[in-house]
């Protein structure tokens, strides 16, 4: 799993100075709850990978690693947004290959 590691690395590098100013716990809470509610908005179109990232974010936060927690929550948010977009798009697009519309 080199991808998450890389993502952690990049976000570590990017987020350390910012997080230090804003308060890492509050930052995490904000992104995490936004990610979670977007994930809920996906309804029956939720992605397992989003759930995985949310879990990783939560456990990182529980162990005090807020940099990782924020990075994971941000990833979860982006994934959740794509799943919501998929849900909206499929509302009509499912007919594309449906037999006997």
């Amino acid at each position: 799993m080199k991808k998450p590691l890389l993502a952690i690395g990049i976000s570590l590098a990017l987020s350390v100075p910012l997080v230090a100013q804003a308060g890492p716990k509050e930052d995490f809470q904000e992104v995490y709850s936004k990610a979670e509610s977007t994930h809920q908005d996906a309804g029956t179109f939720q992605w397992t990978i989003t759930s995985d990232r949310l879990k990783s974010a939560k456990s990182a936060a529980d162990s005090g690693d807020y940099e990782k927690a924020v990075a994971m929550a941000n990833e979860a948010l982006k994934l959740a947004e794509e799943s919501v977009a998929q849900r909206k798009q499929q509302k009509e697009a499912w007919r594309q290959v449906a037999i006997g519309n």
Binding site: K3, A7, K78
Partner: peptide, 19 residues
């Protein structure tokens, strides 16, 4: 091709741009 079954690897974040 809207009918394709190929996953949208970038858009769905299965792979990064670098990957």
């Amino acid at each position: 091709n809207p009918m394709t079954v190929m996953p949208p690897f970038g858009r769905h974040m299965i792979l990064s741009k670098q990957e």
